[in-house]
Structures are given as C-alpha cells and as structure tokens.
Simulated scan of single mutants.
Amino acid sequence: MLSIIICSANPDLLSEVSRNIDETVGIPYEIVAIDNRVNPKGICEVYNRGAANSKYDYLCFVHEDVKFATSNWGAKLVEALRRPEIGLVGIAGAAHKPKIMSGWGAEGLRERFVKINLVQHFKREQREPIHQYFNTEGESLARVVVVDGVFLASRKSVILEIPFDEAYLRGFHGYDIDISLAIGEKYQVAVLLDIRLEHFSEGSLDAEWVASSWKVHEKWAHKLPKTVVPITKRERINCEKRTYRHIIRILKENGAYGLAWKVLHRGELMQLNKLTYLKMYYSYAKGYLGSFRRT
C-alpha cells in the first residue's frame, strides 16, 4: 500500500528508522532504500529512481534521521492521499510563499500561515528538543503552498507525471520548494497535522543551499508570490522584510553577500512599499561597505 523511499548515507540510521517504521506504520509497506554513499547522486535523481522502483500506489519520501511518534500513521497518510485534489502532503509547510528568496517557512507570519507538527532535535547545539506545533485553525489536513523536504508524500501517479527536477537540481537542497510549486500547479499541497515526526538534525544552510535556493527562485520567479489563504498587504511586506533580514545573515555566513542586492531586487518590496525597500537597500549597502572596511 505504501512505498517509503529513503536516500541513505548511514546504515545505522537506516536500520533505526526502518525498525521504527515497522513498529508504527500500521499498514502494508515496503522500504525502498537507496544507498547513496558511493558515487552519490542528487536527491532528486535518487527520489525519482526510488519512485520508479516502488511497487505501491502511495509514496513517502523521508529522511533517515527521523522517528515517527504516531501509531498507524500510514493509514492516516493514505486517507489524505486518496483525495484526488491532493497531490503532495508534508508534515511542515507554509500557506504563503513570498517572492523573495527563502526557505519553506514564512518569516514573520508564523501564527496563521505556518502548519507543522514536528519535534526538532539539535545535533550541532546543546539545546533541548522543541515540539513545533502550529495549527491555529485546528485542522487535520491544512492546505499550504510549500512543504519541508524532511517528509514528502504523494501518489505514484502524480510523481510519475510531475517528477523531481533532477536535471535542474543536482544537489540536496531546494527540491522541496521546487516539487511543491510544480505539483501545486495542478493539485493541492497540504500538511497532515495528525502525524508527529521527530527530526534529529537541523539541516544545513550552507553555500550549496544558497546556490540551489537561488536557482529555484529564478525558475519560479514568474509564479511568486503565492498564497492559499487571505493575506493583507501589511503581512506581505512584513514577510518580505523579515525574510530578507534572515537571508542576509545566511549570505554573510557563506561568503555570498554580493548576492544580497539581487535577492532584494528579485523580491516584491519595491512594488509593495518603496520606503521599506529603501530601508532594506540601505541595510544591504551598509553591510556591503562594511565588508570592504574589514578587509
């Protein structure tokens, strides 16, 4: 009934998640684990190969450093995927995707726009796990624009029709926003809030993430921003502004601050509020000149 596709780089983690899946999934399943340690391929290529090799009609693409904390989660997932209007399901996502370069989260819009049921553990920091649960409307299945790549589920027919873009994205970042927007052209994208997942790493916003994210936003610039719930102009401005401040920090950390002007220009702040745009431009220019003084 459910094919669970895993891009694996750690046999111990794969063994642990396989045991956890067997104890919790609650329906007939198979694990399609692709060893990506030798001659590694990009995750889009791996996921497409896994989908092609799967035997069931419903597919779940999941990282191997996770633990399912909900019993019989497979039945809940299949029930959602049986709805013909649904094309992609995640366990974390946002109902608004700003035009500006960003991750899946809607910065500055957490209350009403972010849908998530995830326990986040921290591998690189001495911090206690955080259970992130945002569901202001009390929904079981909440419609969103984009979902996080830690857990993606769809019907096999949908993935064969709209596969991961392995020709364009050859690494391990950006695939979640890309597949969300691609499938969202024809089907609805949703977060299933009845499944709780534990994730044992924070992800890495490194130079590869910057490059992949920029490519994704170049590809989808003509379709963004996109939202599936009512949003005010003030909320859109706040999201663009907060997202830009967040992205500037990431660019600085990765020695890519020169991209900050292009990121700002590609957003919609200029059209939404010129004064806010100029403030963000001043912030960028100040940081750019400061980098010369330090060298």
Rank of each mutant, 00 (worst) to 15 (best):
E139G: 06
D194I: 01
K226W: 13
S8Y: 09
H265Y: 12
E185A: 13
I31T: 02
L13W: 13
S15L: 08
L205A: 07
E198Q: 13
R124P: 03
R245L: 14
R242F: 13
L192D: 04
P129K: 10
I237K: 08
Y282G: 05
R196G: 03
I195D: 15
G103P: 05
G138L: 10
G290H: 12
D22L: 08
E202R: 00
N273D: 15
L181Q: 03
S154E: 09
K186L: 05
N273E: 15
G93E: 03
G203N: 06
L278K: 10
V32C: 09
G42S: 02
P98Q: 07
V146E: 05
T70W: 08
A69D: 10
I43S: 01
L264N: 03
P11D: 15
I231H: 04
I159A: 11
R170V: 07
R49H: 12
S180E: 11
I250M: 07
D176E: 02
I4R: 12
I31A: 03
I237S: 04
N48R: 00
L109H: 05
T243A: 05
S154P: 07
R266M: 14
D65R: 03
R236K: 14
Y257F: 15
I248Q: 15
R127W: 01
S204G: 06
W104Q: 04
R127I: 00
L278D: 12
I162E: 12
S213T: 15
D148C: 11
G174I: 00
S212F: 01
G87S: 09
K97N: 08
H222P: 04
Q126N: 15
I247V: 15
L289R: 09
E202I: 00
L197Y: 09
V146I: 07
R143E: 11
V119R: 02
H96Y: 15
Y56P: 04
H121V: 02
P28K: 08
R124Q: 13
L251Y: 11
P225G: 02
D35M: 01
F134C: 10
L181S: 04
